[in-house]
Design a protein around this nucleic acid. Structure first.
Lengths: 128, 128
DNA sequence: TATGCACCTTCCAAGCGTTGGAAGGTCAAT
DNA sequence: ATTGACCTTCCAACGCTTGGAAGGTGCATA
């Protein structure tokens, strides 16, 4: 299977697949005589795994760990759960931060006339 | 005023101040004879403005616009408000995405035993 | 067989914002 | 004169993805 075919089946861009290979997230693909990367069915599975993990917001580093756990058939589910929990907490922190930004902005925006006049509480709050 | 003093008073790292100058976010500072950047009181104000805008999550591009509006004494508050609204929407979208990630993960995590056994719904959901 | 097109390859760079280091110059006090 | 704390510039990294350029390959068509 050629890289474009893998890209289509996995939903991961060919460019990104090469990048993943270059950073060691996926193993180096075997090559045809002319140097084209050569993939098999199981690689589709592999990339889909990564794509789903990205969809849950896991970082590359975390995904490397997840792949290790995935391949380790004797893993303890405790380890996976811990990784997930750590990531959930990261998400919660970021959500909280952005929520506060949005809240502050909504408050300021509400107080702003939003017409042709220059007076603006948003600008004022930034400068004072 | 030397850059470290500006950094201290504005709360913006000296390194970052130079970077802001290099990308044109702040004007090029005047120099002493020996080449040191030379700042005045009003630069503190300027950097604080930027820092507060960053604190609200505005991008550099948006901050450039905000600075333009700040300096334009005859701006229409409508323009500022529009910029804020656009940014609020961006925040809401990202918050929503992360919320969904966190929700999915919490659900999966809940279903995971989290003990020494290898069975794990988190891994399973990633591979299937 | 030659032309064209769609693919492949590698390498380098941009985007976001911030931080770090290296190598060298300056200022002030000891 | 030496030290230490500052300054300067330049280059690179973080995390993730995408883009382009330059060149080679595979295959169908004229």
């Amino acid at each position: 299977m050629i890289i474009s075919e893998l890209a289509k089946q996995s939903g991961v861009n060919a460019k990104l697949i090469r990048h993943y290979e270059s950073i060691g997230l996926i193993p180096k693909a075997s090559r045809t005589e002319s140097g084209y990367r050569n993939y098999k069915e199981s690689d589709v599975q592999f990339l889909r795994f990564i794509k789903r993990a990205r969809g849950l917001g896991f970082s590359m580093k975390e995904i490397k760990k997840l792949i290790g756990l995935w391949r380790n058939k004797s893993r303890a589910s405790k380890e996976v759960k811990a990784l997930a929990h750590s990531h959930i907490r990261d998400l919660e922190v970021k959500i909280q931060e952005m929520q506060e930004m949005a809240d502050n902005l909504r408050r300021l925006s509400k107080a702003c006339h939003g017409d042709a006049r220059p007076e603006c509480p948003i600008i004022k709050s930034l400068e004072s």
